[in-house]
């Protein structure tokens, strides 16, 4: 369980994070979103005990992340956002070093992970591609079967196939009852893994939402090509929100009202259909900016 209570860190330049309060429950997958510089990594660094809060506190499983960082780290697996490994070692040497420092006595789970991620650990790290390095980091974060997994931008650099493998991995860990905290930009990844999502902006927590709430907030744009001209007029007359149309191509915005959309479309002859999903951040920003304007 991760708990942040009014966590505040003010850097000398006045930036930082302010009054961040949230709770991640045991067994939950929690997504953390926000533009660059919003304070996501700063928050995560507090969880690992790298930064001392100016005010407030962060705790994991009841242990204070700053004062009892050793107790915290025993049950945490961490993937840093920036890949920077110690120099001059192969993947295996790094994993051995970290296993030794953790006093691990079994390598079963580690070997499984290496197999799953198709990782060639014999390569020197400096010769690895960004994606391969990311895999080494993932193995290092998961190999000791931690209760709490903290991942900063876990899929950056992974190809789509590996992103899928990663999502499967996260789901499995979730099934084992692990608590997972991850920051990400990629919607499908968050959508398919997270139970709840928080967004940060300018160092402040904007909102914490259930993933289903978010999905209902998401506007999807459907690019439909119709077979008959008269169907265009029919759609224009329908209650659907038409963004634009040109010839037989119509762009329809759908937010939650999928049933109405299907219903209307069923009466037309559809030649082709394309979906553009809004990114999660866009939804958030769109949603909260609008709400901010209303105030």
């Amino acid at each position: 369980m991760i708990e942040l209570q009014q966590l505040t860190k003010v850097f000398p330049n006045g930036k930082g994070i302010f009054d961040v309060t949230l709770t991640v429950r045991q067994g939950e997958v929690f997504g953390f979103l926000g533009p660059n510089g919003a304070g996501k990594s700063t928050t995560i660094r507090h969880l690992l005990g790298f930064l001392k809060p100016t005010k407030g506190r962060a705790s994991i499983n009841g242990f204070d992340c700053w004062r009892e960082s050793v107790r915290v780290q025993a049950s945490v697996g961490y993937l840093p956002g920036e890949i920077a490994f110690p120099e001059g070692m192969t993947g295996m040497e790094l994993l051995d070093l970290l296993a030794g420092m953790r006093r691990m006595n079994t390598t079963r789970h580690r070997d499984e992970l290496i197999e799953r991620l198709q990782l060639d650990v014999r390569l020197p790290i400096r010769k690895m591609s960004k994606g391969t390095k990311q895999k080494v980091g993932l193995v290092a974060a998961l190999m000791h079967e931690p209760d709490v997994i903290i991942l900063d931008e876990p899929t950056s650099g992974l190809d789509p196939l590996m992103q899928q493998t990663f999502i499967d991995l996260i789901r499995e860990e979730k099934q084992k009852g692990k608590t997972i905290f991850l920051s990400s930009h990629i919607f499908p990844e968050i959508e398919r893994t997270c139970d709840r999502v928080a967004i940060m902006k300018d160092g402040r927590l904007m909102a914490v939402n259930d993933i289903h709430e978010l999905q209902s907030m998401q506007r999807k744009l459907f690019d439909v090509i119709l077979a008959r001209e008269e169907d265009v007029a029919r759609l224009l007359a329908s209650p659907l929100e038409i963004i634009r149309h040109a010839g037989r191509r119509v762009c329809i915005a759908v937010q939650g009202n999928y049933d109405a959309f299907i219903h209307e479309l069923a009466q037309c002859k559809v030649q082709s259909l394309d979906i553009h999903a809004q990114s999660l951040e866009d939804i958030f920003m769109h949603y909260y900016d609008r709400r901010g304007d209303e105030r």
């Binding site: 690992l48 960082s69 107790r71 961490y78 120099e87 790094l94 420092m101």
Partner: peptide
């Protein structure tokens, strides 16, 4: 200084060993 500057110190400190 180098592991702090380059960030690789994070891996060492993420293990359950005090600073």
């Amino acid at each position: 200084a180098r592991p702090i500057d380059r960030g690789s110190m994070a891996y060492l400190l993420a293990t359950p060993n005090s600073r």
